[in-house]
Write a protein that binds this DNA or RNA. Structure first.
Lengths: 127, 127
DNA sequence: AAACCTATTGACATTTTGTACATAGTGTGG
DNA sequence: CCACACTATGTACAAAATGTCAATAGGTTT
């Protein structure tokens, strides 16, 4: 019994690349700290993603050169924090991802549409 | 260097549950063999998914009671093949998944929209 | 000082997906 | 007949993505 996935706990993996795209878009608007991004992700329904997952995504994106970070010198209350900003490569990657997401959106529309159309016909359901 | 995902090879994981939903919808229309489903997935842009992945998905779905299968007695040219049909539980699960996919579609729309809106403003891009 | 909030990281487990190959029946061309 | 191709499914292992928990750390509040 290896149990292949039960149910997602609301908020996790939606569509491939959504998390990365959201982060890149937020950073394209303006540089920010991980903690801030964490909160801003709610705008795209991506809250409920665990903090470590977001921080990890940021580190991975930095490894790939999509963003860069440095310790924020502005010592403002609390522990040291990194400030992230998008790179030129990040810009390009964002544009590509958005196209991908739009493709996925269309495919989802096709599937959902096909479902409702089929249900409206009242056929099928073969048990 | 554990390398966290490079690029999907077109067709793989798009959105969570898309593959299962597509299979369930196809089976709601009419019972079918795995091999047939494999081809019909193209309707939803899900071709390019490796055969073993589809067969595995079907077996997992059967374990969960969403579908049932039996060896097809109609001996028609070639090796024995399974015929899958959806269950009542499968019907319910399909309906739930479609709602989920519709939610995801909306979130994608929000993200893609926010991107274009932001780009139209010509601000940001902080390198 | 205990408790809490901000902020980031690390390690490990679990889940999901990819890939390559094994098996098997049938038909076709040389 | 043999090699090859097509239909059809299954198995095993590798790799990638995600989840979970706890550790560390500075600062404020009670």
């Amino acid at each position: 019994m290896r149990g292949r996935g039960q149910r997602r706990q609301r908020g996790g993996r939606r569509a491939a690349g959504m998390r990365e795209s959201a982060l890149l878009l937020l950073l394209h608007r303006e540089p920010a700290h991980g903690y801030t991004l964490l909160e801003q992700l709610a705008e795209f329904g991506l809250d409920e993603i665990a903090p470590s997952v977001v921080y990890r995504a940021l580190r991975d994106m930095e490894e790939r050169g999509w963003v860069i970070s440095m310790w924020d010198e502005e010592q403002a209350l609390g522990p040291p924090r990194r400030i992230y900003r998008i790179t030129a490569l990040g810009d390009e990657v964002l544009a590509m991802w958005v196209q991908e997401l739009d493709e996925t959106k269309k495919l989802l529309g096709r599937l959902v549409g096909a479902y409702h159309l089929h249900m409206a016909e009242g056929e099928g359901e073969y048990h």
